[in-house]
Every structure is written in C-alpha cells, then in structure tokens.
Amino acid sequence: MNLLAVVDASVKKEGLQDLTMRRTASSVPFAGRYRLIDFTLSNLVNSDVSTVGIFPSYPLASLLDHIGVGKSWDLDRRKNGLYFLPVTQRDGGLSSVGAFAALEEHIQFFTKSNQPHVVVTNSFVVTQLDFRDMLKQHIDSGADITEAVSKGVSLKNYILSKELLIELIQTHQDKKVVSVEDVVNLKKSPHTFNEYEYEGYFAVIDSVQSYFEASLDLLDEENRGKLFLPDRPIYTKVKDEPPTRYINGSKVRRALIANGSTVMGEVIDSTISRGVYIKKDARIEKCIIMQKSIVEENCDLKYVIADKEVYIGKGVVLHGTAEQPIVLRKGETVTKEDLR
C-alpha cells in the first residue's frame, strides 16, 4: 500500500473535558468495548495501510497501555508497522488536526518511509472510511489535498502527497499555518482542494453531548449495522473476560453489553462496558456505564455517564437529562450520603 498514516491523537476537545481528565480524547471508551482510536486504527488496517504513526499528547499512559506494540491491530510487524511518536512539548495538542509542530519533531518518519502519499487522520471522528477508495479518488482528482466529508460535515481526514506534507511542515511558520486542517480551512493558498464524499456511518465525538448521543444511537440496529461490518471488523486490545452473566431476575431491553459483566438488575436503552456489576433491583435507563464500574442494589440511574471504576452506592438516585447527562468521573464514588 502506497499510503502512510498519521494518526493525530493529540487533538484537544474542550467539550470532552469531563471524560479526558486522565486520558486523551483518543482513548475515551466507546461502544462498550472499544476506545475511540480503535476505529481509526481498524479503518487503516482494513484499508491495507501498514505504516502508522501515532502522534499522542499527554497524559500518555492510558493510550500507550491500550496500544502496546500494536498487536491487536496486526501492526507489530518486522517491516513497517506501528510507530508511537510523542512530542517533547508536554502542553502540546491543538484543537485542529495534523499539528505541524508535532510532525516536525518526527520528520524522519516521513523522510525515511517510501510511501508517496500520506493520510492525516484523527481519533475523535468515528467512521468506516475506506482509505484505498479515498486515495484512488484523490489521485484521479489531481488535487493537492483531499478532504473526506459526509453530508456537509468534515470528517477531518486528509490525503496529500508526502512531498507536499514535508514542504508544509518545513514552511509552516513562515506561512503562519499550524496544522493540515488549518491549511485546508484557509483555502487561501496556492493548493488545489478536493472533497471525498463518504456515505457510511460517522459520528463526531467532540463534546459530552455528542458522545452521549452517538453512544445511544448504537442501540439502533440500523446504525450498528453500518458501524460493525463483518468484513471490516473493529479491533481492540483483547481482555480475557468471561461471557457476561445474567442472574435470575435480570431485565434487559435494548442494551449493548460487553463481556465480563454481571447483570442482576434492570438495564434499558444503555451501553455497558467490560467487567461492570449491576446489582439486584438496580435500574439503569439511558446510561453509559464504563469498565469495572459497580452499580449497587436499588440504584435508579437515568441519563448518567459513569466513567471507569465508578462506585455507585446502594439506593442512589441520579437523573440527568438527554441534553445534560450527569457525568461521574473515573474512579468516583457516589453514595446516598453524598447526595444529601
């Protein structure tokens, strides 16, 4: 494959702050058993792209732990494969995709590779983009830069020649542009632009609100069918979780549930990650419960996002709204006493 990939995992989204206190947007859990970056990496490998540079921002630990040497995506290769390319600037990370300052620090990633084209992608727009198709259309168009769009929304995925990217990296300060996205948005440049119209599933996750909506949209069979395609699987770090057990008395309706969980109570219109405990007579509706969280007996939760390892004590009642779901941060404990 003559395409090199830049995964910009450093993009900062203010609206996601509650979920990104100790991780970057790229490692926010999504759809029960995935992190946002899984969708990007899976699209790349499903499109035969085998040289992938991940440009992360701090804190790194969560993302690094998740990606490892890239084995889950078959990117642990002798030749090419996965490159983890952090920057020295700890407060790095822009709100736009493809920051030149970061790419400049790792200019060798580009100069030493032999692929003629580069896709600059991100990890907060969930798609099933086929980069082979996008590259073909880019080459046919003869344009300098191709941007993927869907229904008038930019998917913040760009293809350009490596030569042009290196030139942009080297001259960005003089030209007063900070990122590939910036160059595309300015449009006041000598370059020619092309749009690649994409028709499949997409979700831009840039706020708690959009995260919540996109998560619950997956309870809809049609949306799920567009995201989970049997011939383009979504890969993630595997965990040795047993199948989920449903204890006598459980009631479950319209739910997306990962392995390793125990359901004793009632789950409606919700997504549940791996290793979650929903205890007896607890009721969960329109909620997102992440990995290893515990919901104790007689809880009543509606419109709640519980991040990883949250503990919700007996009898806690929390009702958010569709517009403003309540977010419980990673590791938080909520008891009835706290709410008095």
């Binding site: 759809a31 029960g32 058993r33 889950s72 309870l219 069979e221 799920r224 989970f228 699987p233 979504i234 890969y235 993630t236 595997v238 965990k239 040795d240 047993p242 199948p243 989920t244 057990r245 449903y246 204890i247 006598n248 008395g249 459980s250 009631k251 479950v252 309706r253 319209r254 739910a255 997306l256 549930i257 990962a258 392995n259 789950v267 997504t271």
Partner: peptide, 22 residues
C-alpha cells in the same frame, strides 16, 4: 479472543439466568 462487537439485547429480547458471549 476473537474480535467481535459487544452483545446486543434487542427490544424484543429477554435474558435471565444465562451467560452470553460477544
């Protein structure tokens, strides 16, 4: 561990006293 999406219990589905895989 095969790479499969999470399990789905639909509107018309009920599961009790069981184990279900991905």
């Amino acid at each position: 561990n095969p790479q499969l999406p999470p399990q789905v219990i639909n509107e018309t589905g009920t599961v009790e006293g069981s184990m279900v895989n991905e």
